[in-house]
Write a protein that binds this DNA or RNA. Structure first.
Lengths: 215, 215
DNA sequence: GTCTATAGTCTGATAGAC
DNA sequence: GTCTATCAGACTATAGAC
């Protein structure tokens, strides 16, 4: 997967065509959805001809698959870096929540893309679908397991694990995908550092209220 | 807006062409998004020719606008029917939450469509955009005001109203829009009556944990 | 109100030269 | 790897008969 980097006369990294295509396609698919993006537009914004684009990605669907996999693998890498920690399941959950929020806040296209992949049921090419589902499955298992362990240890109130997962996903992914609507609701850009911090604290408060036993 | 109903020989209501088009288009836009739906497909599934469809809705965008407005007005009508009640803001919130969940559970296409309209920033025709924004604004004001009043009265813990609104929307709309993913997560259909009830109780528990003072 | 036919444009994808 | 040129088909929307 490692691609040798090239440098220009100033020592700046020159992104490979493949990398440029992926960045452009990520932004476009996030904003407009699969059907709302044309390969012509991807090619133009990548500074390539359509044929050159089709040389790198044989079909539109395989480009979409590559974009989705890249998002999920970035997310998993951040979760791996954020854990596991000591045997305090609430602390562990908070670390992971912060990692996910940072990921969604630093890459504004990640949340819309993730949201689309969770509710749109776009069929990927089988190989991509398998890889994408496997990565997503590992990501979700982390959260589910922390919830289960916390409940078994008697540190968390016993609530529905599946409904809690759905709520956490909704609170994280919807918020950072919510575009203009969310910014109007907040009165600020949701990507501003203080708003990102506020989101972390809010989600922590929600989970603490739901799971902690001193209620 | 009231259209005179017609009846067949058995006394069954015969839906008007307009009504059939709206139902078909709602399902298609919810599943595939604006760009992913063709007017040809809408016409075919409505049992009309393409030209007959364009007679009822002059443009694709105006059809999409009509679909979105219908969803929002149904939601608002249910909220109006669910309140206001006595001056217990938590009870009021719970009534509204139940009403929204019932609305999203009874009309499976409502949540995906609503979700799309909240994060996709598809520009509607100006008249539709105005009406749609006004209805959405009134819906959201109900929730915001209940939260504010509860905090001012000292019945709710003081938390961020805007972040709480974002979380509630995420918990409600994402959950019922989450398609196959959500059903796999739950292990059941999210539209099954017991799962709908479980969702109501879960969301209530989350809000109670966040807002109630006995923590 | 509904039809057939079609205009004009855009789509994903391909062929072949360099 | 990148280009120009092109394909067949789908798209939204319109024209005009009935």
């Amino acid at each position: 997967m490692k691609i040798p980097e090239k440098f220009d006369a100033l020592g700046q990294v020159v992104p490979s065509s493949r990398q440029r295509i992926l960045e452009v396609a990520t932004a476009l698919f996030a904003s407009n959805g699969y059907a709302g993006v044309g390969m012509r537009e991807v090619a133009d914004r990548s500074g390539l001809s359509k044929s050159a684009l089709f040389h790198h990605f044989a079909t539109k669907l395989s480009l979409y698959g590559a974009v989705r996999i890249a998002i999920l693998e970035d997310l998993e890498a951040r979760l791996v870096a954020a854990g596991p920690v000591a045997d305090d399941p609430m602390l562990q959950l908070e670390r992971w929540l912060d990692a996910v929020i940072d990921a969604l806040a630093e890459r504004p296209h990640a949340a819309p893309l993730l949201l689309r992949s969770l509710f749109e049921d776009e069929p990927l090419e089988p190989i991509d679908a398998e890889q994408s589902a496997a990565t997503l499955g590992r990501i979700l298992s982390r959260g589910r397991d922390a919830l289960r362990i916390g409940m078994q240890n008697g540190r968390f109130r016993r609530v529905s694990v599946t409904h809690t997962m759905q709520s956490v996903i909704g609170m994280l992914v919807f918020h950072f995908a919510s575009g203009l609507f969310g910014d109007q609701m907040l009165g600020h850009s949701k990507f501003a550092p203080d708003q990102v911090q506020a989101r972390k604290e809010h989600v922590r408060a929600v989970l603490h209220g739901l799971l902690s036993l001193d209620g």
